[in-house]
Design a protein around this nucleic acid. Structure first.
Lengths: 232, 232
DNA sequence: TGTACATCAGTGAACGCGCGTTCACTGATGTAC
DNA sequence: TGTACATCAGTGAACGCGCGTTCACTGATGTAC
């Protein structure tokens, strides 16, 4: 009977959910290095080998966590963007930046897993790519909307290097339709700048340097908005 | 005899050097997590407990590596700066940025140890602070020199947040004498932007995104120079 | 210069730990007739 | 509706590994008289 098959499958799905849930809290406590199948099994009240019914290896479990993490960042970005008036491009940009920062502060080890030093020996499979780019779509849409509305007026600067045109074309197709090379290049700068700020705050470089980190972050992101040409 | 005491001490110093050397290459191969006292001892042809004559614990060895790393970045920055004409502030800025990037590319795991996700369970002792700020002095001197020469002309922007004044004062004392708050704030932005770029490149975020990374990096750093108000 | 003693370097065995993964197995749950 | 069979979940023991750290010890190197 297909109803009973789905019953078993529901239990299975629920257990997979529970395993990743426990793995996530362990990740939050100890970081990626401290994630262990045996510890997860212990907390599940299972024998360690039972986990292998659900995940083929430790790396598979890590991959699941990574995908969940990227999706969580993507969700946070989307929600933050959706809460703003469509034409308030600068407000949308700022809201999404804050959402990324706040997610990172709330999930430091997950953030480190996604954007920090690579986990030694771990090679990300293809399935992570889609989720990994979700939040980028949000940023792309904001800048793209502003550009389409003629609201993008970047301050003068050097032209993007010639060797960048191919990359720019690929990025236009993926996230920034119709934006000129210079805008794409600036978007990349802003992108790495945002994550540079968040990483520095999270990884301790701002300790004893910046006190009111939220305010400095906002200031930085506003400055980046100007740099991108978003309206004041 | 004091000559013979120094003989013993010379051997001791040489062994400490050799241990950190081997530890450094292991760090380069496997990352911080893969650094093991036993492996170092094996490669030294010693028994593992012998290492404890030279380092009280694994963390102590890590600390030594971290200090060496910060000093290496500091040296690279200093050398790059010293090779430029004093009044070419933009050239000096660019040279130091490149030096940081090139050091990072040449020593990815060491870079990750210094600027990537914190090593779980490791708490940096006070002795790392001095070396950690050496390269910052170099950046500070460039911006400070430009400012003192009246060559700093930053484009308009929002004022730094009020809550930043205390931090700015502290930073003025440490690395940026006599610079106004806005300049200090911009220096911080540029600082995290630089390391954001380098980290993204190193940690794989630019994979399949940017092809000619050196060119894009140069472009970004030049843009940051303008943002700081360094002359074109 | 020679001897008695103190310091230091390195050994080897051991403690106690945790890990990922495999494998043959027992029961329970579902499927087909 | 009832029975024979196949699938799946979970067990428990084991393999083989490496790790940091401690400790009592042997020799060698240096020191003081």
């Amino acid at each position: 009977m297909s109803a009973s098959r789905t019953a078993r499958e529901r239990v299975r799905a629920e257990l997979i959910r529970e395993i990743t849930e426990i793995a996530r809290t362990q990740l939050a406590r100890e970081g990626a290095g401290g994630l262990s199948l045996r510890a997860v099994a212990r907390e599940m009240g299972m024998v360690s080998s039972a986990i292998y019914r659900y995940f083929a290896s430790r790396d598979d479990l890590l991959t699941a966590l990574i995908i969940d993490g990227y999706n969580a960042v993507g969700d946070a970005a989307q929600v933050a963007d959706a809460a703003c008036p469509r034409e308030d491009y600068t407000g949308r940009w700022l809201a999404v930046c804050r959402a990324v920062r706040e997610w990172a502060l709330a999930h430091p080890h997950e953030y480190a897993l996604l954007y920090g030093s690579p986990v030694p020996g771990y090679r990300a499979p293809q399935d992570t790519i889609g989720p990994a780019t979700r939040y980028a779509l949000v940023f792309g849409r904001i800048i793209g909307d502003a550009h389409a509305a003629g609201a993008l007026d970047p301050p003068p600067g050097d032209p993007a290097p010639a060797s960048f045109t191919g990359d720019a074309e690929r990025l236009r197709e993926a996230v920034l339709p119709r934006a000129p090379d210079e805008v794409v290049a600036r978007a990349l700068t802003a992108w790495s700048s945002l994550f540079g700020s968040v990483s520095f705050e999270l990884f301790g470089q701002f300790d004893n340097v910046i006190t009111d980190r939220a305010a400095v972050f906002d200031h930085n992101m506003t400055t980046l908005a100007r740099f991108l040409g978003l309206p004041a």
